[in-house]
Amino acid sequence: MRRWTPYWLALPAWLWLAIFLVVPIAAMASVSLTTGNLIDGFTQTFSVSNYSDAIAKYSTQLVRSLVYGGVATVIMLVLGYPVAYWIAFKAGHRKSMFLFLLLLPFFVSFVLRTISWGFLLADDGILLGTLKGWGVLPQDFHVLATTVAVIGGLVYNFLPFMILPIYVALERVDPRVIEASYDLYASRLSTFRRVVLPLSLPGVFAGVLMTFVPATADPINAQVLGGTSNTMIGNIVQTEYLVNNDYPTASAISFTLMAVLLIGIFIYARALGTENVLEAAAR
């Protein structure tokens, strides 16, 4: 009897996954292969034209989303790694305070944070207005409604998800291993390159996944901070779903995005040598 206990205990989680992940995905897959409209009904035609039409129509936004997500992820990595490193190795007993500060913005809702960015970066707002007043910036300079604002917003909103896993990985690096490297004639740079960086790769891997995927799919930053040519694929899904009630197209785009992201992750994992990465992470 008792040997079944773990299975029983795992059952709720499995059911949860089955009901809230597998069933909706299956339903969405099915919907993506229907044709029709809400009024006349959708019929299961198994036609893949939804996919080809959606890709043809929205390839610009899809590619743009991947580029924005990718660029934002790279920036987050470049900005986030030193922060994670600093907290892990230099913050001393104030570590938990800095981690708390890092998470502090998350006590405010995502949308509100993004909107407050819009406020901060207004053309004649506190930041730009002041700089323009000093003559540092030309009068017609603006940040909002540009690609820079959208990517900046993505970076701002997802940065902690890059920092935290890298921090956790760095935190797990045995300081004696770092000393051993110094002891074995490695300079600081070479210790970082040969020892610290490889050992933190599982964290980098997790951080990239946790930021690239949501950043690519995010609709809010483009909507609040973007201009006329910053529409991302998340906005398109939203419009197709809510405004046009074109469920098949919305599902097809969602699946296309999912597929593209999965393929991207797979390639990325292969390039980074996931087996080692995941093994090291599991250690």
Partner: peptide, 25 residues
């Protein structure tokens, strides 16, 4: 209304039954 608009739309699509939706015209 902004703040709440993003919550609703996943529910909308997920409630669709698979294998086509009957028109109700």
């Amino acid at each position: 209304r902004d703040a709440l608009r993003f919550a609703g739309y996943s529910a909308a699509g997920l409630a669709l039954a698979a294998c086509g939706v009957q028109g109700q015209k």
